[in-house]
Structures are given as structure tokens and as C-alpha cells.
Amino acid sequence: MNNNQLGTRPHYQLLDGLRGVAAIIVVCFHLAEPLASSHLDNLVNHGYLAVDFFFLLSGFVIGYAYDGRWDNLTIGGFLRRRLVRLQPLVILGMTLGAIGFYFTDSTLWPLIHTVPVWKLILVMLIGYTLLPLPLSMDIRGWQEMHPLNSVGWSLFFEYIANLFYALGLRKLSNKALAGFVVLAGAVLVHFALTSPNGDVAGGWTLNAEHMRIGLIRTLFPFFAGLLLSRVARPASINYAFVWSSLLVAAVLLMPRLGGAERLWVNGLYEAFCIIVVFPLIVYIGASGVVPTQREAKLCQFLGNLSYPLYMTHYVLVYFYVAWISNHKGITIAQAWPYALLTFSGAIVLAYASLKLYDEPVRAWLRKKLN
């Protein structure tokens, strides 16, 4: 932890670093996804579980940062702080997605050039609010609530979790919160074991099924993270960043389990990771000691980069996916230079977004809203 800011609680630097590690693996997951023949053989098979990890991290950090401040904090003040933190990059991601929309020429999206400009602008403006779009407004054809920036769905559910927390669940005692978390965990296990796909993936379409999946994926990890922030007593663990980063990578890179015949095996693995392994990783990260200035700077860099990387990388992935779809049968050996170029571009775009847009805009908003 770092406590070099006067008047603030100690800051969990290692958790920032872990968020960056997970964001990088998300990019790798999206680059490997179009090269897989099905959801059973993706090279980065469980990369989508990073979203569930982000939810748990978010719940932990929100509880740690805000649980003890409600005597001097209003619901409106809390929501303003969350909007300042999250919304600028939501707007940037949607804007970049709209700019790149007509340039992603692909056999996957043969009709996007027929979308009128007024409809593109309307989709972009609604995207700024993160309100989910109905299927009739899905201009890309992937059945997504945010067709200009695919990852927007998880921010929609992040806001829902923040609203639940601010409007009432923050008032639960630890015992009541534990009961809620156990119930949410039981629902998660049931869903994971009975999912027709054998996994917890879903939440990005505005229909009853995906809304249910999105809520299931949000409620347990977010409020388990909140509970963990209240009851955990961090120890002092050496090499915590190394061990916790390896655990994150191991979970997200794990090959598909059970195959097409025993889908429940993979579902059980994912439920176990979300319910047991992810809280353990966060506990290790919260217990870690930053041994050197170099490691502290690495964690700070990864933490600062994580959210911009998550919110802007898919803008470039659209071009990459379009290129893959226009070269049927391409192998990983042939595609890796383009994947590396896209990955490098995503890192550069994220850093530029952070320094040239996100940090200045957030500083301006804080000055205006305080």
C-alpha cells in the first residue's frame, strides 16, 4: 500500500496493477477470438472472466473508498464522482467507434455502409448515456446494446451496481450483506452449471436473457468485493504482485474444460474462479507490499492505463476482426503480426487517451463540479 497522500486512506497500488494485467489479457482475448473456430477453442479461452474480476475489484475499491464517508457524502455527490471517473472515456470510446464505423469494410458487416448518418449519430449520442440500445438500433448486426463500442455493456452494469450500492445496499450490515452475497453466489453457481453454453458469458444484448446474465455476473462479484473490503484484514505478503498476476493470467488463459460433452465442468470452473479465486487474488493484492520504486511505478502505469485500454481498444479490434473476416482460413501463424500491430496500437491509443483527454477532462470536471 501507499500512504503518501496527506488526508487520504492508504492506496492499494497492487490492485491497480492487477487491473492493468487483466485489461491487457482482455485485449489478447479479443484478438484471439476471431481466430477460434468456436467458443470451445479460443487461445485465450476465459478472457471474458476479466469483466467479473473487474466487478469484484470495483466493489472492493468502492467499499474501501466510500463506506466510511456517508456522513459527509450525498447520493448525488457519490454519483457525480463516479460519472467524473467513468463517463469521459465512455464518450471518447463511442466517438472513436462512430468515426471508425464506416471504415471497417468487412464481409461480417456488409450493410454498415447503408446506415444513414443521422442514425449513426443517434446511436452515438445514446451510447454517450450508456442506455442500452434495442435490437432495432443495432447498426452493426452483432446484437449488442452498444454497437459502436462493444465493451460499453459492462459499464452499463457497473453503473447499475453503483446505483444499488448508493441507494440502499451500502446500509446493509455485514451479516445482511453476507446473506445477500451467498444468495447471489448460489444464483451464479446455478446459472454457470445450467448455462446452455457451459459458461457465464453474456450480458451485452437488450433482451430478457442477457439482462438476467448481466445482473447475475454483476451482483455477486461487486457485492462480494464490497463485503471483502469490510471484513478482510490484509496481511503482509511478499511478491504479492507476482503471485496475484500469475493467478489472474492462469484463470483467464485456462483452456476450455469439459469440451462440448460436459459443459457443466467448464461452468463449475468459472463459478469457482469468480466465487473463490478472484476474492483470493484481491486479498493477496490488498495484502501486498511494494518492495521497490520500480514495481510501484509499474503498478501505477498499469493501473492508469487499464481503464483507457479497456474503453478504447475495441475501436481497433473492429478493424482487426474485419481484416480476419476478409481472409477466410487465416491461421494464427499468419495473423500474429497484425494482432501484434493491433495490440501495440491499442496500448498507444490508450496512453494518448489517458494523457491528452481523460486526465485533463476529469481535472476540469472536478473543478467545475466541486
Rank of each mutant, 00 (worst) to 15 (best):
F53H: 07
F53W: 05
F55A: 04
G59T: 04
F60A: 11
F60M: 09
V61L: 13
I62S: 04
G63A: 13
G63D: 09
A65I: 11
Y66G: 07
D67R: 13
D67M: 07
D67V: 13
D67F: 08
G68T: 12
R69I: 03
W70M: 06
D71P: 00
D71Q: 14
T74A: 01
I75E: 11
G76P: 04
G76D: 05
G76A: 12
G77T: 14
G77W: 08
G77E: 05
F78N: 04
L79M: 15
R80F: 00
R80S: 09
R81Y: 00
L83F: 15
L83Q: 01
L83A: 15
L83V: 14
V84I: 15
L86Y: 02
L86W: 04
L86I: 15
Q87M: 14
Q87R: 01
P88E: 10
V90L: 13
L92A: 11
M94R: 01
G97C: 07
G97S: 06
A98T: 11
A98H: 03
A98V: 12
I99S: 08
I99F: 15
I99T: 01
Y102I: 02
F103D: 02
F103G: 03
T104V: 11
D105S: 10
S106F: 05
T107R: 13
L108K: 14
L108H: 07
L108R: 14
P110T: 07
P110R: 10
L111D: 15
I112Y: 03
I112M: 08
H113K: 15
V115N: 00
V117T: 14
W118I: 06
K119M: 15
K119Y: 04
K119G: 06
K119D: 11
I121K: 10
I121M: 13
